[in-house]
Computed example of a mutant assay.
Amino acid sequence: MSQTPIELKGSSFTLSVIHLHHTQPEVVSQALQDKIDQAPAFLKNAPVVLNVSSLNGAVNWKEMQQAIAATGLRIVGVSGCKDDALKRMITRAGLPVLSEGKESKPQAEALPEPIVQAAEASKTRIINTPVRSGQQIYARNADLIVTSSVSAGAELVADGNIHIYGTMRGRALAGASGDRDCQIFCTSLSAELVSIAGEYWIMDQLPAEFFGKAARLCLQDGVLTIKTLL
């Protein structure tokens, strides 16, 4: 039994990053609400990081924070902040200012849901067992290969490509560090969500003719595209 009441560990989480391009809170709020209406199951009450690197001009941070929070999104931090005055406002608002490496996912010091994490020795992570609901597998700086099925409620995350050789019913997020050349390969596509470098479809957006079929997803001209897996 542990001698201390808590144990602090580092872990990795996939968070959506909202890049703000407008200083008017009501404009940002409406744009966010439109996105949430498109994918409520994915975005409702979701934890998010705000990236403010593209903001030019004065911004009323208190109003901006309130407008975003009113949509139901949970702000867990702010990145891309280069203005000292804005940093002070963000800090006074009780939010952490996050520093980014090469636009990688923010790191959170917390205990996640049950995670199956592959070893980091090779450039390809291979999972030979079924991925069950509530599990997350993250392949850091690598491709991810799952030779079995992925249940609904499970999540696959890879900085590289993702290959699923069983039925895919969960979520697959390839190019998690922003690599837009990554792809998703699946022999039976019934996913709750698929995403490449932040561009995503939920289940209802998957073309009906590909549902339950072998498929390959990639980005073409920045748009998520699906093709038959030959």
Results as ranks from 00 to 15, higher is better:
residue 62 K to V: 02
residue 120 E to F: 03
residue 171 R to S: 07
residue 81 C to T: 01
residue 220 Q to R: 01
residue 67 A to Y: 08
residue 92 R to Q: 15
residue 202 I to V: 14
residue 19 H to A: 04
residue 8 L to C: 02
residue 188 S to P: 03
residue 1 M to G: 15
residue 152 A to R: 05
residue 30 Q to R: 02
residue 21 H to R: 06
residue 12 S to F: 13
residue 63 E to S: 08
residue 109 E to P: 08
residue 9 K to W: 12
residue 181 D to E: 09
residue 54 S to C: 02
residue 183 Q to C: 12
residue 86 L to S: 07
residue 88 R to L: 10
residue 10 G to H: 14
residue 29 S to H: 08
residue 93 A to R: 07
residue 81 C to Q: 03
residue 12 S to D: 15
residue 34 D to T: 12
residue 24 Q to E: 14
residue 180 R to T: 00
residue 23 T to G: 10
residue 32 L to A: 02
residue 73 L to Y: 04
residue 179 D to W: 06
residue 123 K to Q: 12
residue 83 D to F: 04
residue 214 A to D: 04
residue 184 I to C: 09
residue 229 L to S: 10
residue 46 A to N: 00
residue 183 Q to H: 08
residue 109 E to L: 13
residue 63 E to P: 01
residue 190 S to P: 04
residue 113 E to A: 10
residue 150 V to C: 05
residue 160 G to Y: 05
residue 190 S to L: 01
residue 117 Q to M: 04
residue 78 V to A: 11
residue 6 I to K: 09
residue 207 P to K: 00
residue 167 T to M: 08
residue 26 E to N: 06
residue 1 M to T: 03
residue 154 A to G: 05
residue 4 T to Q: 15
residue 36 I to P: 13
residue 64 M to W: 05
residue 207 P to H: 03
residue 37 D to V: 10
residue 226 I to T: 09
residue 133 S to N: 12
residue 56 N to C: 01
residue 153 G to N: 02
residue 201 W to T: 13
residue 57 G to R: 06
residue 135 Q to V: 02
residue 14 T to E: 14
residue 76 V to M: 15
residue 198 G to V: 11
residue 33 Q to D: 02
residue 8 L to S: 04
residue 21 H to L: 09
residue 44 K to V: 13
residue 127 I to M: 01
residue 125 R to A: 14
residue 106 P to N: 04
residue 207 P to D: 06
residue 61 W to I: 07
residue 3 Q to V: 14
residue 146 V to M: 01
residue 121 A to C: 03
residue 50 L to E: 02
residue 171 R to N: 05
residue 229 L to P: 09
residue 155 E to L: 09
residue 56 N to S: 13
residue 30 Q to N: 07
residue 20 L to E: 11
residue 195 S to H: 12
residue 52 V to R: 04
residue 66 Q to M: 04
residue 71 T to V: 10
residue 100 E to N: 10
residue 204 D to V: 15
residue 36 I to K: 11
residue 172 A to S: 13
residue 49 V to M: 14
residue 8 L to H: 05
residue 47 P to N: 11
residue 175 G to I: 00
residue 191 A to S: 10
residue 34 D to V: 12
residue 168 M to C: 04
residue 93 A to Y: 06
residue 122 S to A: 11
residue 221 D to R: 06
residue 150 V to S: 06
residue 66 Q to S: 13
residue 57 G to P: 10
residue 164 I to P: 00
residue 113 E to S: 11
residue 200 Y to S: 12
residue 76 V to T: 15
residue 112 P to G: 09
residue 66 Q to R: 08
residue 80 G to E: 10
residue 222 G to P: 02
residue 225 T to G: 12
residue 103 E to N: 15
residue 136 Q to G: 04
residue 143 D to C: 04
residue 155 E to K: 11
residue 30 Q to C: 01
residue 6 I to C: 07
residue 76 V to G: 14
residue 176 A to T: 10
residue 99 S to C: 02
residue 139 A to R: 03
residue 26 E to K: 07
residue 136 Q to T: 13
residue 81 C to N: 03
residue 61 W to T: 10
residue 66 Q to P: 08
residue 20 L to Y: 09
